[in-house]
């Protein structure tokens, strides 16, 4: 029998494949190989500054999921956004302090897509240079300060 984390991930996968969310696409082949590593493509929403762009998110889950949050970061082309560092790390409270086991891959994707959608200009976080030079490879090891609830 697979572990509880895998069972929940399989349920989420099935749900996302049967009822796809707009602008959110799962790399099924990758997930089929390893249920603990997901690649999700996010499409910039229409009438936003990211319209026409696509980005890739990497989700990594450990055996404590959903009690422990997934590690989520952008890979490849990183969106230029005031809460997204150029190394792909995302400053979003639900990924660390505000995670709850009621959240899911779908909910995280939706939050990130909406975070992109509400941006009005493309700029990197003010501390991008220093953060990307000094941070851990794992964004969950960063002590994030959440100070801007508007974007």
């Amino acid at each position: 029998m697979s572990c509880p984390a895998e069972r929940r991930l399989r349920k989420e996968l099935l749900e996302l494949l049967t009822n796809p969310m707009p602008g959110i696409y799962i790399d099924e082949e990758k997930v089929a190989k390893n249920i603990n590593e997901w690649i999700v493509t996010i499409e910039g929403a229409e009438k936003t500054i990211y319209e026409g762009e696509t980005f890739q998110l990497q989700f990594s889950f450990n055996e404590k999921y959903p009690f422990d949050s997934p590690t989520v970061l952008f890979i490849g082309k990183i969106p230029v956004h005031s809460h997204i560092y150029s190394n792909g790390h995302i400053c979003l409270s639900i990924l660390t302090d505000d995670w709850t086991p009621a959240l899911s891959v779908g909910a995280v994707c939706l939050s990130i897509r909406s975070m992109l959608s509400s941006a009005t200009k493309k700029e990197r976080p003010p501390d991008d240079m220093i953060y990307t030079r000094t941070c851990s490879k794992n964004p969950k090891k960063t002590k994030w300060f959440f100070h801007d609830d508007t974007v």
């Binding site: 572990c3 509880p4 069972r7 929940r8 349920k11 989420e12 959903p66 086991p101 009621a102």
Partner: peptide, 14 residues
């Protein structure tokens, strides 16, 4: 169940 997503009539994963 909002945590394990199993039906309430089923048991938790443990």
């Amino acid at each position: 169940c909002g945590i394990c997503r199993m039906a309430f009539e089923a048991c938790c994963p443990d």
